[in-house]
Amino acid sequence: MNLKLKIWRQDDKSSAGRFQDYEISDISPDSSFLEMLDLLNEQLVEKGEESVAFDHDCREGVCGMCSLTINGVPHGGERGTTTCQLHMRKFQDGETITIEPFRANAFPVLRDLVVDRGGFDKIIQAGGFITCRVGSAQDANLTPIPKPVADSAFDFAACIGCGACVASCKNASAMLFTGAKISHMNSLPHGKPEKDRRALAMVAAMDEAGFGNCRNYGECAAVCPKEIPLDVIAKMNRDYAVATVKDFLGIG
């Protein structure tokens, strides 16, 4: 396959970026999108140019490191698929592909296509955990958890923290991500004691990190590679409201 690429290049956080055009030929349709970029980089290095920086690690759709907005859609628009799992056979020979970093002010560009998603870590640090001192846990089977509850907790916990939800959202809202974690932990019996605190603290951290407000567009769930449902935002809203009322009344 032969392709034209329009790639965002930026030296560092403080400099301005620009699109640069590249051409690449003889790409196997069996190669993955990132492998296509690997080959582009090999060619750039050969010419003595700086390679295009992009994030990646596991390359099997689970670590959440890869990003990229491809032709305007984070992770390229194939349902339930991360960029690293996207394959070139999904593109047309001769096509022009636009490649940009994930876009949000809370995700500053560090270089080229690499962004800083540290805001997500901050949200988790604020309350995305269930406190349990090592060694103090009871026997694992002491608290049975109904299978449907455990299964849906898993669905929520499947989030890989990639940030596509934020990048797809015209409001740069992190509510799908935050909602997924809150829903995961708040739905399990072990997570209940910290439920209210968690909802309040994580939402506060989310706001603090500079993410926007959800306006119920639903783009996030459509691009989420783990197909996290919009439900989690509704659940989070509900938990937050309950926590607020309790906080106001001074109960719980």
């Binding site: 859609v73 876009r103 409001n171």
Partner: peptide, 23 residues
């Protein structure tokens, strides 16, 4: 706040599924 949270798009802006009403 939402404008402040998101920079102006440089490249393509695409909607995957958001309805006209919501936008």
């Amino acid at each position: 706040e939402n404008r402040a949270a998101r920079p102006k798009p440089n490249g393509e802006e695409k909607f995957v599924q958001a309805t006209v009403g919501s936008r």
